[in-house]
């Protein structure tokens, strides 16, 4: 996709978090981005054009996932569980890279010949959440910021959320028997040493999107 100034679109204009929420998790292929916004996202026009980069709206900004930069260190899972669970684990992490690292369901990983493809999966924060809709107890709710959380008082650990999520992101902790999912705390991106996960603050997005 060319970084042209003359091709204006909705996305070149005044970005707000709400507007990005509409885009969140979707492919960015075919959309036109200004050079300044591409720069703010820390990615290349080519990566956007080839669908290698995904973005997710977080309260703090836009979460950018760049698979090519992922080095497989699992620090995202480590920082997620240290922050949210008071322990260190991979399985219950809300961001998941380990399951893509060895021999993933997608046929990628170190034990395949798929040219070093592995990357972190993140919660999509779906507008109509499969997890929440599947929960028989109504335990998954949206907070004031729109972040979907698990009410552990209501959760019975049945795993319906895990099964319903197309990406199996919510995970029932085998010890507490409570489900957990991403609460958009940002610890994964803050501790990512390669920039594979990054959060671009909203003010930077707005500022960049107003430039031509």
């Amino acid at each position: 996709m060319a970084e042209t100034k003359d091709r204006k679109s909705f996305l070149d204009k005044d970005y707000t978090r709400r507007q990005f929420l509409k885009l969140s998790g979707k492919s960015l292929v075919g959309l036109t981005f200004s050079a300044s916004l591409i720069s703010a996202l820390g990615v290349s026009a080519k990566s956007l054009a080839e669908d290698k980069v995904r973005v997710w709206a977080f309260p703090q900004g836009l979460l950018v996932v760049d698979a090519d930069r992922c080095v497989g260190c699992q620090r995202c899972e480590i920082n997620c569980t240290l922050t949210n669970d008071g322990c260190c684990s991979s399985y219950i992490s809300r961001v998941k890279v380990t399951r893509n690292l060895y021999s993933s369901r997608n046929g990628t990983g170190l034990y395949t010949e798929d040219n070093w493809t592995y990357f972190p999966d993140t919660c999509r924060q779906c507008k109509k959440p499969f997890c929440g809709e599947a929960c028989p107890m109504g335990a998954i709710y949206a907070d004031d910021l729109g972040v979907r959380r698990v009410d552990t008082e209501k959760c019975i650990g049945c795993g319906a959320c895990t099964e319903a999520c197309p990406w199996h992101m919510p995970t029932v902790n085998p010890v507490t028997h409570k489900s957990s999912k991403c609460v958009m705390c940002g610890a994964c991106a803050e501790g990512c040493p390669s920039g594979a996960l990054s959060i671009v603050p909203w003010d930077m997005i707005v500022s960049a999107s107003q430039k031509t």
Partner: peptide, 22 residues
């Protein structure tokens, strides 16, 4: 395959020390 966890006495201290080291 391990689905368990390692218990940490002061998890946020570990995170802060790790950040300081890095």
């Amino acid at each position: 395959r391990g689905t368990g966890a390692v218990k940490i006495a002061e998890p946020m201290k570990v995170r802060l020390l790790s950040n300081y080291m890095i």
